[in-house]
Every structure is written in C-alpha cells, then in structure tokens.
C-alpha cells in the first residue's frame, strides 16, 4: 500500500472554502451588529447627548469581521477582505453613511491587516488580536475625524483626539478580545476543522 501525504496547497493562497467562509463571517457580523444596534440605542443615545465622542466606545463592534476573519482564515488579506465585505453588506441593508461606508470598511480592515502583516501572518495570539483590533479602531477614528466624509470632520481638535482614543480602545476590547475568545470557542466546536485555526483553542494566549 502506498502512502502519500496530500500535497498541500501553498498555505498562503485562498481556497474556495476560505473565500466563502470569510464572506459569510463578514455578513453574519453585519447581521449581529445590525441586531445589536437596534437594542444599543439605549446606550448610544445618552452617550451622544452627554459627550458625542463617547460613541467611539461602541465602534469596535463594526470591526469584529476584520479581526475574527483573520483569526479564522489566517491568510494574507483576510482582515481587509472581511471588513470590506461587511461594509458592502451594510450598504445593501441601507447605511446612514451612504457609499462612503465602503471606504470606511476598507480603511478599518487595513488597520487590522497591517498589524497581522507586521507579524508575518504567523502570530494569532491575544496580544496580536488586541493590537489588530486597536489598529482597526485607530484607522476608524482617523477616517471618521479627518476624511471629508467622516462624521466627525467638524469636531474641534481635542474632541477628535478623544474620539480616536475611544475607537482604538473599543477596537482592542470589542473587536480584538472578543474575536480572540470567539475563535477559541469556535475551534472547540469542530467547525474550523478545515482551517489552520482548528487548533486555536489549544494555542497559548501569549506566545
């Protein structure tokens, strides 16, 4: 009997299953946040009334697809792809940001992607996830404050800074930490069997 290990596809290239799963994660992320934002009005309304930059603390929810997608797929471009698709999904559902949501999504994805690229797509532990979330949050804050379509373009300097700090924190905690926890949970259920992230649950958190 001849035994031959199956030739592996270069682990950097995307398979069909990577594409479809990444896209659906992005879309499911959109639905979750859509459902969430219906209930979150109770939280965001007082924030807005008191000090509008505080709403930056909720921004991390939008960036979950970027970090979660990368933690699961583990292929270059996953953060960028997932976040852009999530933004496209939002556009289809009717976005208050109009077509500019596509650019915002791209920029947020880029913020996370850069962090994973710095670690050459080899590290997917908790610190890297937090950094990636913060990166996405930072880019989100910058986009909202300085891009012409940004919603906070007319804020004065100090308020912009406060907003950016809040989005970065929110990105790290909501998008970074939650995605990392979710990936470990998903790995335990066995649904990640065909991805390198199938072992995420047994990987150490910090190395």
């Amino acid at each position: 009997m001849s035994t031959a290990a199956i030739k592996k596809t270069t682990s950097r290239s995307w398979r069909v299953v990577d594409i479809v799963v990444a896209a659906l994660i992005a879309i499911a992320g959109g639905i979750i946040f859509w459902a969430w934002s219906q209930g979150a009005a109770a939280v965001s309304a007082p924030m807005n009334a008191v000090y509008p930059p505080l709403t930056g603390l909720l921004a991390g929810g939008w960036m979950i697809p970027a970090v979660l997608g990368m933690l699961i797929i583990r292929k270059p471009g996953a953060a960028l792809f997932c976040e852009t698709i999530a933004a496209t999904g939002e556009l289809f559902m009717g976005s208050q940001y109009g077509a500019s949501v596509l650019f915002s999504g791209f920029v947020q994805g880029l913020g996370a992607e850069i962090i994973f690229a710095i670690f050459v797509y080899r590290k997917f532990n908790l610190p890297v996830s937090l950094l990636a979330g913060a990166g996405a949050g930072l880019f989100c804050g910058l986009n909202d404050s300085f891009a012409p379509w940004g919603w906070n373009i007319a804020y004065s300097g100090g308020d912009k800074l406060a907003y950016i700090v809040f989005t970065a924190i929110s990105g790290a905690v909501i998008a970074g930490a939650l995605s990392w926890i979710a990936t470990r949970g998903l790995a335990r259920t066995g649904v990640l069997a065909s991805f390198a992230s199938r072992k995420a649950a047994s990987e150490p958190a910090f190395s």
Binding site: V17, V20, V21, A23, L24, I25, I27, A28, I31, I32, I72, A182, L186, T189, V191, L192, S194
Partner: peptide
C-alpha cells in the same frame, strides 16, 4: 449564529 454560518459556508 457564527457556528451555523461557518457550517453552512463550508
């Protein structure tokens, strides 16, 4: 929902 999404997508 994520579990179901990944199962379905696969």
């Amino acid at each position: 929902l994520l579990v179901q999404a990944i199962r379905r997508a696969s």
